[in-house]
Nucleic acid binder design. Sequence first.
DNA 1: AGGGCATATTTTGCATTCATTTTTTCCCAT
DNA 2: ATGGGAAAAAATGAATGCAAAATATGCCCT
Lengths: 255, 255
Amino acid sequence: MILQTIVTPMKSTIPESGVPIAQIADNGTPELSLHGEILSRLRDYVVEGNIPDGARVPERQLCELFGVSRTPLREALKVLAAEGLIELLPNRGARVRELGKRDLEELFDVIGGLESLAGRLACETITDEEIAEIERLHYEMYGYYLHRDMHNYFQVNQRIHERIVAASRNETLRTIYANLAGRIRRVRYSANFARKRQRWAEAMREHEAILDALRRRAGSELSDTLFQHLRNKRTAAVEHLGRTSEGLTTESVDG
Amino acid sequence: MILQTIVTPMKSTIPESGVPIAQIADNGTPELSLHGEILSRLRDYVVEGNIPDGARVPERQLCELFGVSRTPLREALKVLAAEGLIELLPNRGARVRELGKRDLEELFDVIGGLESLAGRLACETITDEEIAEIERLHYEMYGYYLHRDMHNYFQVNQRIHERIVAASRNETLRTIYANLAGRIRRVRYSANFARKRQRWAEAMREHEAILDALRRRAGSELSDTLFQHLRNKRTAAVEHLGRTSEGLTTESVDG
DNA sequence: AGGGCATATTTTGCATTCATTTTTTCCCAT
DNA sequence: ATGGGAAAAAATGAATGCAAAATATGCCCT
């Protein structure tokens, strides 16, 4: 699990120059330590799907690839396991964690719950400028929708959701959200591409409702709308997963 | 960026559902690897407040204490940093992360959001037996309330909340919840002890409302009630923190 | 006596090494 | 051939070693 490692206000005896290294799922700040660097790169490497699901994560080869010894790499593996991206099997190394149908459902529900919470909190403190920025993104996304530009639509869509979470002014929430969102990024992406036109239009309407509730700062309403939006995404993604056994999972999901 | 794909020698079958070791804040399943063992023990050690907040985590001493070399201990430190329990400063070791007022507020809000979600989900699938078990705990807790037995009240209280989360049938949620709950356990505990009688009575009434909504499987209502319950806990805890001092200090919590 | 600076000690980060365990290979028996 | 199993090879888990950075110590000077 991922959580944050932000430097909090420190005691007077401690010099101020400390910079935390174990940035989790964060922006691309220059990593000072080798471990942090490797952690970021390895996470991206896995998220981007360079290793087949369920396949072994080859320690030795990755060491060569990244040009480091096993020690920092293994530390990174432990962290990724804690994040839920991979799993560690005793004496048998790390495997890319497969996302089964149930895992996906769970993740979407939790993400939905978090976005729902974020929406409620955001309404309490969001500024007009932030709303304006989200509006801007919304119309940008609408443009991509009209042009059937799935890739950019997806990117902007993600950023809108991130903005809402950021507007909650809750760094803890933001960090956890980023972690979970990272886990299902691939599924969301491919599910998006496989979208039927109808669902896509539906999603656009939902986004309009979201924006509308946000403008009115209707916390409770926004909360519900976001949760329902994610529920619909969940349905679409899980359906997609069911149709394609490609890449993301094998079966092995019993009821 | 790295685009190379690593080819792993994959067996045709993916059998032997091994047990992942890096369980986060999980139950006390027997840990097989030294790393997992150390991770658990170190987490407990920190959570229990054996190291003052903001203080340095003495790598070497802990190695002696646990009787292991630095390698598995450092791996555990990386994971704990990812969990947010400690922070890692480059070349300057690990420090116990201090929970400031803002951190607490954030954590309570997120936990509230998660419990709220859990309640909603639980109502969809909870069985009569599970409800009966929670009822049993509720009345047990009520007994401790009447006897002003704060310690046991706290324990059972925690278990009730855990049961509700468990009833959501969402392992992902359960894991994240356990992690966050662990982070603030100490605060919750001491805040509980400092409770004014009025707040305590209030909490009991809230719990009754929770149980009531659960019996009727009124998801939306339960969701709201839980969130509000946590908001009130947040207020109490933050107030308590303000009174005791900035940040929590060594307050050994036994049991 | 106290502050500043150079040196010694400790600590950290990472690489390397070592002991097991697992996986593969290859030989033999059926 | 084919399946079983022993031996070889490789991978894993953990300890140790080593260079660099940080902290502590002590010396010198005012």
